[in-house]
C-alpha cells in the first residue's frame, strides 16, 4: 500500500510542478469552450441548449490529449522499466497512475466547469448537473484512454493515432454523460437512468482499463 502511495505522490508532484501537464488540459478545455460561440454564433438560447454537449466534448478532448503522456514520459526516461520490475502488480501500478492522472487532470476540468457554464449561459442547476456527470464520467474517460496511452508506449507512437483509436471506445461515456445532463436540465427522462449507466461504465472501465494497459506494457519489447 505504501508503494502505491509513493507512486501516487510522485505522479501528482510531477504533474503539479514546472513542466507538468495539469494546467495545460484546463487551458485546452477553456479554449475549446471559448471557440464554440465563434463557430455557432453568440446566440445565448442556442448555446444554452448545446451547453452540456459542448462542455462534455471539451472535457473529453482535454482528457484525451493529456493522457497521451501518461506512460510515454515514464518510458522515455527509463522509469517504466523500474515500474515493471517492481513487486507491485503492474495492473495496480497502472490503476494508481490513472488515479493520479485523474486527480491532476480530470478534477481541474470539473472545477472550472461552473465558470465555463457561465460563459455558455447555463443556469445553476444545469451547471451542477454537468459537473456531477463529469465527476461520474471522467474517470471512465481516463481509464479507457489509459489503454491508448499504454499502446502509445508499445508502438512508440502517440498523438493522432491514439485519438483515432480511443475516441470510438469513449462514445458510450459521451452518450450517457450528455444524456444525463440534458435529462436533468430539460427532462423528460429521469436523471437517474442515464446517470446510473454512466456510473456503471466508469466501474467497468476500472476493471478493463488497468488489465488491458498492463497487458500492453508487458508486450512492449525494446
Amino acid at each position: 500500500m505504501s508503494a502505491l502511495a509513493a507512486l501516487l505522490r510522485r505522479d501528482i508532484r510531477v504533474a503539479l510542478r514546472v513542466g507538468g501537464g495539469a494546467l495545460i488540459g484546463m487551458l485546452f478545455f477553456l479554449t475549446v469552450v471559448v471557440l464554440m460561440p465563434f463557430a455557432l454564433g453568440p446566440d445565448l438560447a442556442l448555446l444554452r441548449r448545446l451547453g452540456p454537449a459542448i462542455l462534455w466534448l471539451g472535457a473529453m478532448l482535454a482528457s484525451l490529449l493529456t493522457l497521451d503522456r501518461l506512460f510515454l514520459a515514464d518510458s522515455e526516461d527509463g522509469s517504466l522499466d523500474l515500474l515493471v520490475m517492481s513487486r507491485t502488480p503492474l495492473e495496480l501500478t497502472c490503476a494508481t497512475k490513472a488515479v493520479a492522472h485523474w486527480l491532476t487532470a480530470g478534477v481541474p476540468l470539473i472545477v472550472i466547469t461552473p465558470a465555463l457554464g457561465l460563459l455558455l449561459n447555463l443556469d445553476l442547476l444545469a451547471t451542477a448537473a454537468v459537473a456531477l456527470t463529469l465527476i461520474a464520467g471522467t474517470p471512465a474517460l481516463t481509464f479507457t484512454g489509459m489503454i491508448g496511452a499504454a499502446l502509445a508506449v508499445t508502438l512508440h507512437r502517440g498523438g493522432l493515432l491514439l485519438a483515432v483509436i480511443v475516441v470510438p471506445l469513449s462514445i458510450p461515456v459521451l452518450i450517457f454523460g450528455v444524456a444525463a445532463s440534458t435529462a436533468a436540465i430539460t427532462g423528460p427522462l429521469s436523471f437517474g437512468t442515464p446517470f446510473s449507466i454512466l456510473c456503471a461504465l466508469s466501474l467497468a472501465s476500472f476493471v478493463i482499463g488497468p488489465f488491458a494497459a498492463a497487458a500492453c506494457l508487458r508486450q512492449r519489447m525494446d
Binding site: R10, R13, V14, R17, V18, G19, G20, E76, D77, G78, S79, D81, L82, M85
Partner: peptide
C-alpha cells in the same frame, strides 16, 4: 536494473 536512461524526474 541500472540502464542508460536514469529514470529521474527533473521536477522532483
Amino acid at each position: 536494473y541500472l540502464g542508460h536512461r536514469d529514470a529521474l524526474k527533473p521536477a522532483l
